[in-house]
């Protein structure tokens, strides 16, 4: 009776974790997809208005970067869940590679977001100063 119960518990755990992983990864993929569609719409709006210039495009790119970083966090959560039930060394290796890529990308994305934000702040601060220093005749 004991081993049978163990097996059924293990299979229950496996299927439960599998469902969770799929749910979390689907959420991550959905966030990335929604972010891409949202960014596309925003690029079209900025393009049609023809206002704001590079700063408007950069701000939309920043938002898209945030969507990507959030989706990546979800996918990393799925990876961590999957390590709980990874049965073979090959799968663990693949998982490690995916987690490494996602972690590296998340790091770079966060750094880029910070740099772009600093650039926008610099531009915003420089704008009025230029106006003051060089008044139009």
């Amino acid at each position: 009776m004991g081993p049978v119960m163990d097996v059924s518990l293990e299979s229950l755990l496996l299927s439960g974790v599998d469902v969770l992983v799929r749910l979390v990864e689907a959420a991550g993929a959905l966030i990335i997809f929604v972010g891409a569609v949202w960014a596309f719409v925003q690029f079209l709006i900025v393009g049609l208005r023809r206002s704001g210039g590079d700063r408007a495009f950069t701000s939309v790119r920043l938002r898209l970067g945030r969507f990507l970083a959030l989706g990546l966090e979800f996918q990393l959560a799925g990876d961590i869940l999957r390590t709980a039930v990874a049965p073979s060394f090959a799968e663990i290796g693949q998982l490690a590679a995916i987690a490494t890529i996602r972690t590296a990308l998340n790091f770079f994305l966060s750094r880029e977001i910070a740099e772009e934000r600093a650039q926008i702040e610099r531009d915003r601060n420089e704008g009025p100063r230029n106006e003051r220093e060089f008044p139009k005749p």
Binding site: I32, A36, A39, G65, F67
Partner: peptide, 17 residues
């Protein structure tokens, strides 16, 4: 190019999912 690369990264992440 920067915008295209952002979208291609999103596509790559979806492919990894």
């Amino acid at each position: 190019v920067a915008v295209l690369l952002d979208f291609l990264t999103a596509a790559g992440l979806l492919r990894l999912a």
